[in-house]
Amino acid sequence: MIAHSIFFYTFSLIAIVSAIMVTASKNTVHSVFFLILDFISISCLFIMIGAEFLGMIMLIVYVGAVAVLFLFVVMMLNVAQQKNQWFVGQQSSKHIPVGLIISTLIFFEIVIVIGGWKYKPEIFDINNSFAQTSISNTHSLGQILYTDYIHVFQISGMILLVAMIGAIVLTFRQRAGVKRQSYIKQISRERAEGVEVLEVQSNKGVKIDD
């Protein structure tokens, strides 16, 4: 039990410190690296409570894909220039009320959850939930997701699909004058189309490109 709590406090300490460092560090790329550290320690905590499937999915989806894209975007942006535009000067005061509202909302949500956990512990009792402890984590998740919550599951899939299509539509643009290579055209070319024998008269060139 001692080893268990040592590991728990280590991981949660790392998670909290790196979460603070995400907002505190000056360099944006460092923030993303701290975010990744945060994700990894959270997934370690998931594994510690026996939710190994969720922990691994957290690693694969958030650290393996989402954070890579974050890093991509942050590295490509000219951060030093935008810092001046966003965080310094008159413009920045506009964002403060919105941020305040959102953070107050999150604060009250946390208060409600912790209060409920403190005064109505039976709501969070594991025996009342659908999860069975006798079978493996992955198995019970699948049994719940694909039976009781199949519609919610499908709807969330549809929402993700719509978001994906929307992102593609927003960034898609057809540029004129771009030379593209078509594999089928290249492979199915015959000699007759590519080569032409011309009679070239002296002192008069031939126009080859059309």
Binding site: F53, M56, L59, G64
Partner: peptide, 15 residues
């Protein structure tokens, strides 16, 4: 229990 997922996660962290 989740050996394959672990392998997949670690190989995706390699980037």
């Amino acid at each position: 229990n989740v050996g394959v997922l672990y392998l997949f996660a670690v190989s995706s962290l390699g980037v």
